[in-house]
Structure formats: structure tokens, C-alpha cells
Design a protein around this nucleic acid. Sequence first.
RNA 1: UGGGGUGUCGCCAAGCGGUAAGGCACCGGGUUUUGAUCCCGGCACACGCAGGUUCGAAUCCUGCCACCCCAGCCA
Length: 550
Amino acid sequence: MLESATDFIRQQIDRELAAVVGPSAVVTRFPPEPNGYLHIGHAKSICLNFGVAEEYGGRTYLRFDDTNPLAESLEYVKAIQQDVAWLGFDWGDRLTFASDYFERLHQCAVKLIENGNAYVCSLSQEEIRQTRGTLTEPGVDSPHRNRSVRDNLDLFARMKAGEFPDGAHVLRARIDMASPNLNMRDPVLYRIRHAAHHNVGDAWVIYPTYDFTHCICDALENVTHSLCTLEFEDHRPLYDWVLDNLSLNARPRQIEFSRLGLEHTVMSKRLLQRLVSEGLVEGWDDPRMPTLAGLRRRGVRPQAIRDFCSRVGVTKQDNQVAMELLEFCVRRDLEETAPKGMGVVNPLRVRLANYPGDGEALEAPWHPRRPDLGRRSLPFGPVLHIDREDFAVMPPPKWKRLSPGAHVRLRYAYIIRCDEVVTGANGEVAELICSYLPNSKSGSDASGVKPAGVIHWVAAHAAKPAKLRLYERLFKERSPSGADFMASVNHSSLAIASGLVEPALATSREAHFQFERVGYFHRDPKLPNTYNRTVTLRDSWRPPSGGQPS
RNA sequence: UGGGGUGUCGCCAAGCGGUAAGGCACCGGGUUUUGAUCCCGGCACACGCAGGUUCGAAUCCUGCCACCCCAGCCA
């Protein structure tokens, strides 16, 4: 049916569809719990669920798995919707909440009780834990396991009515306390929680657990393929057991795939939370965070994230994807779409001794290969700023930048030569006295001089000061270990430079730019006059000795 | 020592009995007014290990080994 099945899940769907006679539909769902921000690992799941449905002409639900009122809030519900939409996926009118189904879930629970498949257990949480057994030893039956249906119904009704405090009773599935699968040892289906719920308020004091809820919601929404991560593999027998013991029309199947692992970062909510609470980052949307909010603020576009997800693939293998792949996708996307201007990170003053007048307006395209992006005016003048990295008093071999006596092309402007180096009090280069070649203007060069290279610059009289936030990896190690991951935090992952940008860039309505020869930058949506470095440009220049290239 | 999974190039990942795709990274070369982009070329006699079946095995069988997940009234 499909010319190229790209992963084991799509292959399975292909096989299923090939065996089906009548019409068939593929229905998936992305089911986040609204208890935190989405990260790039979620993006993998979102791309999979929405992608599969789209490819097979099906549909996808955005369903909030909100069965634990203690952890969830409306703030996250909103943020998650924003992130999914930002990625470019449309759930149409299929925005649902597990809590929308609380009434029907309750009916299902009553049905299980009536059929002898569930019972009210009055053991304490501690007692349940102690009687569950271990990995190698079976558990022991609850003393309440054989309560009569009538008693169970009565107790469950009173639980629902709010007669008991939290923890007094739970509803348990009656399966097998000796099962080698711990999830099947009479798992809890409902617990008492006197807590307000972000969606249904205080309508309920008993809340269903994930295992009971998820499969039923899938069935109610006619989900055909319930795609989740590997740690739920052991839950599949329970998922199936619940549905087997209810008579719902649909029969969804759970398929598990591996989570995304990314080098130099962590993906667990707990660890990310620590970074935020301990002030190692400036919030959930800090551009160093792997959250979608962080990536967005950093300047990563959804197209790049989608490309990344498709390149990473979907398998059951544990994986740790190189950060280089994400960076590749980001550059690839921005290279085509971002206007290219000039920004200087560490300004070094350059005075053109032979330049007459106050200055002139040059012109340049926003993108050499994208004339549709237009052109901008580029002020030039007698005093300029170049990047300090582009000048060397004693240049290493094959130096293609400025140095005493050397010629260099100022991008889209003139060729200059460094005639004199003015040194400051503490021996540092304070200023460069240069001369320019009047007949070397970009586009009409008649100088015949072949410069060593091309460097970027801004005119002192027109440049706008800007804070440039330069980010590096949040973790020094590729795999920050869970235990001492704090020790591998890169405390110099943010450097703030006082730079200069060309005026057209500062007034542009665009948000993403390439600063030529420096990197891709994104105007920060919160901080004024600030640009976040999304990613550097690739740099294959390696100094023969121990130089300091950009 | 219970159950469930996974092992193919540094990192991802195709392959599904017929003699190892692709991407990233890396290494060469070309183009270039970004040491960028782009283009060309190189990069696993080898598929966790050991046996076996077969004319033929990464693919089938057996046995080992390694790693991941599970003992929440979290999801």
C-alpha cells in the first residue's frame, strides 16, 4: 500500500491494512499529562502519532492524560497545546481530556466489580506494597479480595460519595497476585483523592489510574494504534486485560517504541526541574533547555525539529543521538530561510585613514541565493568595527583574515589594508589604522588586488549595540549520568557579549538571521535588543598551531 | 536467581535466507566576495559471542554474554 514503510510501526500497519477487506482507518493519539513542559523527546512522539495518521488518511487526538489532579494544571494544558501547534500539527476538533470520560470510566469500573473482576481493598498503601511480593517472589492475596459484589459496590459508591479519607480504600483489579509481571498483581484502578481537578473541579474525589484509564479512552476514541514508549511494554498485558473484560466496540493495540536519547542533555522531567529550581538555567524556556519552549526561544524552527525526528527514526533500540545531528538539521533549515546580515561579537575599531567624507550607503542582498528575500542598505564609513578574531598581529600560516600589511575584503564593501596597529596601555590591540582601495568596491572591483580573505564588519556611525547570548552545551559530558549529573553541568554554557549589528538587521521584522561567518541568531522574544545564538556555523578551519579561531 | 525488551560503522538506522542502504560525524578534493553553503570522492570481508541448519545466514535453530525496563494509591 505504501511504497516505502520507514519503520516497524508503519510496516505493521501496512500488513494490517493489507489483510483488511472493508474500509479501514488509522486513529492515533498524543496523550501528554499536563504536568510539565514538552521537550524534544515528546516531539518524536508527536511526529510519529500525527505523522502516521496523516500518512494513512487517519486522524489524531490530542488527549490530556489528566488522571492525577495533584500534579496537573491549566498552565501546562495551554503550554502543551501551543507547542504541538507550533510544531505544525492540527488536532482539529479532537482535543480531549481523560477527565472528559470520568463518568464512563466509572461505569466501566462498576461493570468490572459486577463481574467479579475488581474489588475494594482496604489495605494501606504500605500494606499493599508489602504484599505485592518482589521480582522473584509472588505476592499474597489481599484479605479483601473475596468481598462480595454487593459489598464492593457499596464501598465503591461510598468512596465516590466522599465518605472516606484519602488512602482508606482503593479499587483493585482481581487478576493474579502470583503473576511474574508485577503490573498484573491486582493493580490499583481507582484511588481516593480529595483534590480539585483543573478540568472537572471538585466533581470527583476518586480518580482512575493510568492503567485503567488509558486503554479505555483509547477504545472510546476508536484509537487503532496506541503508540507509547518502551517502559509501558510490561503494561500491555494489563491494557489488554482491562479491554478484554469490558465490552467496548473498539479494540486498540498498544505498540511501544524507544524514547529519544540526546547527547549533552537530559530529558527527564525531574532532572530538568532541578536545573530550573536550582537556578542553573533561567527557566523552562531557557534557550539551553531541550524543551520545545527553550528550543523555540533559542531560534530552532519547527521544521528543523521535524526533520530531526524523521532522521532519527523509530525503533525499539535504546539510543543516544548525537547533538551534531540536531545542529545539522538546524543549520540546514536556517541556511535556506534566514536572511544573512552582519554582526560583530567582539568589536575592534578600524579607522580608514584615507577614506574621504562621512560615509556612504552600500547595498547588499539579504541572501545571495534567495533574491526573493530582498536587499538592504548597508552603511559604510571612515570608522568601522570588525571582530577581534579576524585580526592577528602575528598570523599563523594560511591566515585568511586581517594582519599587518595584509589585504582583506570587507564583505559587500571595499578591500582594506592594515597599515598600523595602535596598542593600548596594557599591550592590547586598541585600534587598527587601515587604508581602503577606492576602486575595489564590491561588484565593481578594478583594483586587481587579491585579498587574503573576506571578513564581516559594521560601520561605527550606524551600527546598533546588541547583547549577543552565546550558548554552549548545558552538559560537558555526552551522557550526563542520572546520579551525579549536576557535576557535569557546564557552568559557562552562557556567555553574553556586547556586540554590534548592522542597522538593517536591527530594524528588520525578521526574527532569525545568519550573522555571516559567525552563526545563526534569533532575536530574543523577551529581552530587548538581545540575540540568541541558535547555532554556530560549521567551522573546518583548524589553526596549524595553537591559534584561536572563532 | 522472576518477567518484559534490545544488541548491524564513532552516533542514528535500513536489511525480513542470496552474498552489508542511507544520514550525521570524520577524512580527502572542487566551486565560492561567508575558512559557510553547494558539489565530488573515501569511510563495516563485517552484523554481541560460540556452535548448528543450509549450496548459501546479519537474516533460521541452540547456548551463552551485555545493556535497558518493572516491586507508585505517577504517567
